[in-house]
Design a protein around this nucleic acid. Sequence first.
DNA 1: CTCATATATGAACTACTATTCATATAATCA
DNA 2: TGATTATATGAATAGTAGTTCATATATGAG
Lengths: 118, 118
Amino acid sequence: MSDICEVFCINKEAVDNVRAQMLHPTLVADIAEIFKVLGDPTRMRLLYALAQRELCVCDLSAVLGMTQSAISHQLRVLRSARLVRYRKAGKIVYYTLADAHVTQFIDVGVDHAREPRQ
Amino acid sequence: MSDICEVFCINKEAVDNVRAQMLHPTLVADIAEIFKVLGDPTRMRLLYALAQRELCVCDLSAVLGMTQSAISHQLRVLRSARLVRYRKAGKIVYYTLADAHVTQFIDVGVDHAREPRQ
DNA sequence: CTCATATATGAACTACTATTCATATAATCA
DNA sequence: TGATTATATGAATAGTAGTTCATATATGAG
């Protein structure tokens, strides 16, 4: 039964109803993409650090104990996902969280992870 | 400047303060893991379908238009992450969302993805 | 200009992951 | 019992992603 069409146990009404309410593929892709970006320990730590205060790349390296290159690469991912903003001050680049939504993501995640596992 | 210790631009006070407030590595790993599981289009579609109503594996295959095997593999990931629950009724296995937290994750994601991009 | 510093980025390598295919398990029916 | 159906899973494969290393860009100092 590896072919998609050879499925016989379908509750047709349920399937049709749910399919009709499914999200647009583009929107699903966007949502999954955001979560994917959040789903890496390094990026999560960067966001959590930035939730405390604005920080430059160099300080972020020090906080996480990782190379400047690794941090820069991950900041690029966060920038592409519009989860952080930056401002330049001379040769120093300061990063901040993009908006309140990002804090909300972090909070929901922390909340869920701290929940006791039944 | 590839070595972590050869960094000179540090704002020591900021770094120390932020480091002191960082999350425990285990908690960070747990949070990132949850987001990682959410960060796949197939799994996001499965969760969104289950947000509508309880569905069996076969119906989920029909809703997503994917093989039963692919769906089963992803349901296993969702089960390990405690994002879904299931009940057996004969040979049919019905899946549901684990709790309200999961709906909250989906809502925050949808909300963020629908936001206009400045 | 030259030098030093802060950050960004391309290439390479390793590790991981989603799907497919084949097959196993489990439950129902005849 | 044997046959059928619903689901689960192991192995293999192909694509992706995080870090490192080397280097490029850019700003400021002298």
